[in-house]
Amino acid sequence: MAATSDTSADIEEHEDVWVFVEQHDGEVANVTWELLSKGRDLADERGENLVALVMGENIDETDIPEQCIARGADKVLIADDPVFEPYRSDPYGEQFRHLVETHKPAIALIGGTHTGRDFAGRVAVPTHAGLTADCTELEMEDGRYEMRRPAFGGDALATIICPEHRPQMSTVRPGVFPAAEPDADRDGEIEEVEVVVDEADTMTEVLEREVGDVADITDADVVVAGGMGAEGDFEPLWELADLLDGEVAATRDAVEEGWIEPARQVGQTGKTVRPKLYIAAGISGAIQHLEGMDDSETVIAINTDPNAPIFDNADYGIVGDLHEVIPELIEYFQENEEAIPA
């Protein structure tokens, strides 16, 4: 698989903004709608089409293509074959390579989930694309596509450019951009593409797949998050979140301790949330965590260490153990139910 040498003439042939539609069994990952909203802005600025790419089986029995159009796509490309369900990097990668060679997109946006990152890393190589992981800002600047991402553990923001190779690919973690709202009146084109992958050529086989409901913490107005200070007991956080109609989230450390599911991780390697209220309990405030929540409207900090960086990054804080403070908060809101909007 030799490197293709891209020339400037070749670069000018590339146009359109693509979004990889991440779906399993007809369920679309929410990050896809977020990418469609950002992709729409980019396509408008570039005067190009926004194209949604769907791979899977029996896509025509779902409303995924129509949903993509309603949420901003001008065109939907569908590669429909049993070989594409469930996701595997090798058939998806081969099909994507073919589509890039035949359709020549300028930009491709991919969700920064495990599936999206597995896919992006695979497909960037044969297409000789420039790939930037975990972008938090994507902008057109004087006709140039600029991808910004955290660097050095989040202390800095690096601007990555891809001047001489196409497509320019970016992965984006869930929650970074707002989801595109559906507009049923939008028009778009749906095209079935040729499937170039054969099951006999695949190198992998999915033996078993166990996927439950994925918690979505990115939509909640109230997020109660715990860190190492929870010391293995998230019960008070669940109770408070329940009372305030919110969701429970956690730091990477807490997830790695196995105290809570990975889908609830906030931060550089997890999700980005921007709720009205973020309660950080027993969280020291490492930069990697702050990055996933510092767009929250109001931040409350509860920590035993008065010098914890979270206090500099919070609006209101209290020095104390969350296992004492949170039960007191629960008691307050049980006694003052009128303080909680219906």
């Binding site: 923001l157 601007t159 990555i160 891809c162 206090f311 919070a314």
Partner: peptide, 25 residues
């Protein structure tokens, strides 16, 4: 394919930074 086009330090989000003494507050 990719190049670093620039590097900025991340600006901290301005916060009230008020620490209270009582849980009720």
């Amino acid at each position: 394919p990719t190049q670093v086009g620039g590097m900025d330090t991340a600006d901290p989000v301005p916060r009230e930074q008020e620490v209270v003494d009582e849980t009720d507050e």
